[in-house]
Every structure is written in structure tokens, then in C-alpha cells.
Computed example of a mutant assay.
Amino acid sequence: MSEAERVPVEVAVGVLVERDAAGREGRFLLTSRPPDKVYAGYWEYPGGKVEAGETVEQALARELREELGIEIGPAHPWQTLVMDYPHARVRLNFCKVFDWTGDFQMLEGQQMAWADLPVQVKPVLPGTIPVLQWFAAERGHSGPTHLD
């Protein structure tokens, strides 16, 4: 089956962003992929597959509860990107999240880091790099978005 014929798996991705007192966007949350998953140790935005009958927002709320132990407020659809990985073709539905409750718990053995540009953690999952570029464009950041 060619790349074009591979049907993408729908994935909900949470871009949790802190805001300052004036409402400006600040640091964002990255998590490492768990030891038992493909690309273990790579840094990404948290999220997961959209199950049958779920909306992207419902899937995101479920995934962040399962992965991080938090309850999220509204998910704001932001960008969509199709990525072809050797193991899967995925449609990444990125949603910004500004409100959440609960203490972060790394329920899948992953790590977390609050980041800004340029991102200091590495390696970064290929599907995360375009998001860093979108942040750079929005924020007028002209330097590198991540360390190689």
C-alpha cells in the first residue's frame, strides 16, 4: 500500500500553554514518550488516538486524564498536520489548552517539561517540530526552535 493510500489515524494532541496576567501565551508543556512505545524518550505534546464515537476534544480530555491525571477546560482547535511515520500515518489535531485542574502525574512513566523557544529537551519527535515553528511564527521568534 502506498503512502497516499494509508488512511491516517486520528490523533488528538494537547498543547497546554501557560498565560501571564495580561493573557499572553508563555511556556508550553512537553512530555517524553513512554519507555514501551515507538520513539520512546522522544519529546512531544501529550495526546492520543481518537476512539470511535469521540470528538477530538473528548479524546483529548480522556487522553490527558489517562496520561497526566488532569482535567482540562476547553480545547481550542489550532492546527492539523498529517505525518507519515514508518509505523503509522497519523492526522495530528492540535488543540491549545489554557485551563486545567489537578496535579500533573506521569501515569505512563513519561517525563514532563515546561518549555519555551528554543526547546532545550531532545530529541524532539518529528511531528512536534512544525508546532514549534508555528509558535515561533506567532511569537515573532526568529531564532532556532529546538536544539538538534
Results as ranks from 00 to 15, higher is better:
7 V>P: 04
2 S>M: 03
147 L>E: 10
57 E>N: 08
142 S>Q: 14
42 Y>I: 06
39 Y>A: 10
141 H>E: 05
67 E>T: 04
40 A>M: 08
28 F>E: 04
106 M>T: 13
51 E>C: 05
36 D>Q: 12
54 E>L: 06
59 A>G: 01
147 L>Q: 12
88 A>M: 08
11 V>Y: 06
24 R>E: 15
3 E>S: 15
31 T>F: 02
75 A>W: 07
29 L>Q: 06
71 E>L: 06
86 P>Q: 03
4 A>H: 12
29 L>G: 00
95 C>N: 08
59 A>D: 02
107 L>Y: 05
85 Y>E: 08
50 V>L: 05
78 W>F: 10
11 V>I: 15
19 R>F: 02
20 D>Y: 07
16 L>V: 08
141 H>G: 06
28 F>A: 07
82 V>D: 10
145 T>P: 04
23 G>F: 03
28 F>C: 07
43 W>I: 03
129 I>T: 11
75 A>P: 03
41 G>F: 00
12 A>N: 07
6 R>E: 11
88 A>L: 04
92 L>M: 06
140 G>N: 08
13 V>T: 14
6 R>W: 12
114 W>G: 00
139 R>P: 00
119 V>P: 09
57 E>K: 08
22 A>G: 12
100 W>A: 05
18 E>R: 15
40 A>N: 04
43 W>G: 09
81 L>Q: 14
57 E>M: 08
43 W>N: 06
26 G>T: 08
17 V>T: 12
62 R>K: 04
85 Y>L: 11
100 W>I: 02
98 F>L: 09
115 A>W: 04
137 A>H: 10
11 V>P: 02
147 L>R: 14
131 V>H: 00
37 K>Q: 13
32 S>N: 08
86 P>H: 04
67 E>N: 04
71 E>R: 10
125 L>C: 09
8 P>D: 06
3 E>Y: 11
48 G>R: 04
132 L>K: 03
139 R>E: 14
125 L>K: 09
145 T>A: 02
105 Q>A: 15
107 L>N: 13
34 P>K: 14
88 A>I: 10
48 G>F: 02
2 S>K: 09
26 G>I: 06
60 L>V: 00
73 G>I: 13
101 T>L: 06
96 K>Y: 07
66 E>C: 05
107 L>I: 08
6 R>K: 14
30 L>E: 01
139 R>M: 13
125 L>I: 14
1 M>K: 11
4 A>S: 15
7 V>F: 01
136 A>P: 11
95 C>E: 03
141 H>D: 01
114 W>F: 07
46 P>F: 00
25 E>P: 02
143 G>V: 03
126 P>H: 13
84 D>T: 05
85 Y>T: 11
54 E>C: 03
144 P>S: 09
30 L>Q: 04
2 S>G: 15
108 E>C: 02
107 L>G: 01
110 Q>A: 12
86 P>M: 07
58 Q>E: 15
139 R>V: 07
99 D>G: 07
90 V>P: 00
42 Y>N: 01
3 E>I: 12
